[in-house]
Design a protein around this nucleic acid. Structure first.
Lengths: 147, 147
DNA sequence: CTTGACCCCGTAGCCGCTCCAGGGATTCTA
DNA sequence: TAGAATCCCTGGAGCGGCTACGGGGTCAAG
């Protein structure tokens, strides 16, 4: 199968496939006489694996390591478990900060309901006030949430 | 005040301050005879403003625009409001995908409790199975959540 | 025989920093 | 007063994970 077909089959962009090849994540496939890449079933599976890992937002370095471990079936899988644990921790940390961010933005957004001039915009006022060291709704809101 | 002092006062890294100057976000300050940058109160406030916006994860382009609008007090603030709305939407979208991600990772993690060999690791099994088109716990979990 | 879809390659750009090398200035300590 | 530690300067490269672009070759349909 050609690169475009592989792209369609896996949902991975053509450019991304070439990028994965260049960075050694995906084996370089055979070539036809005209230079076109020809992929086999193994490539399809490997690329799907990569895509699935990426859907879990695992960094490419981790994906690389996982691919390596697939080829070393006797290794202890503690490393795999830990890899997922670390990713879970990352995701949870981001989840926390996203939640805080949402609260802050909602509070900020509440400062300006109707269109006015910039100089009377509650949002801009808040941001400027915060820059001058005054307590801003974003942080006030954050503090009040955890009394 | 020198760059290091400004950095301490605002919590922004020295390198980042220079980067902001280079990209035109922060005005180039005066220099002492030895070439050292000398910052005034205005710089401190502007940098604090930037930092606060960045804490809300606003992209630098938005920060730039906000800084511009601070200097145009007669403009209608609808643009400001919209800017925050867009950011809120971005954050909420990411929040959703982080939540989904967390669920998927938890489901995946549950596949391997005790250390075994890689070939018997439930996690690796799942990932490989997913790559071969079989339903994986991650997606199964995601589907069951929304019946 | 042209049109359009596909493919090739190499390089540059995106964001928001962060780090480095290779220097000079200043300040603290012995 | 020497030397060490800390600060500051510049320009440029590197990070992750793509994405876009320019300038070309290939191939099948109409």
């Amino acid at each position: 199968m050609r690169i475009g077909e592989l792209a369609k089959a896996t949902g991975v962009d053509v450019e991304t496939i070439r990028y994965y090849e260049k960075t050694g994540l995906l084996d370089a496939p055979a070539r036809r006489g005209n230079g076109y890449r020809v992929y086999a079933r193994a490539h399809l599976e490997r690329l799907s694996f990569i895509r699935h890992c990426r859907a879990l937002d695992l960094p490419l370095a981790d994906v690389r390591r996982l691919l390596c471990l697939v080829g070393l079936p006797r290794t202890c899988c503690a490393e795999i478990d830990q890899l997922i644990d670390v990713q879970l921790a990352r995701v949870r940390a981001r989840l926390l900060s996203m939640r805080a961010l949402e609260r802050q933005l909602v509070a900020l957004r509440g400062q300006c309901q109707a269109p006015r001039t910039a100089s009377r915009c509650g949002i801009l006022h808040e941001l400027v006030a915060a820059a001058q060291g005054e307590a801003c709704v974003c942080h006030r809101a954050a503090c009040e949430e955890q009394p």
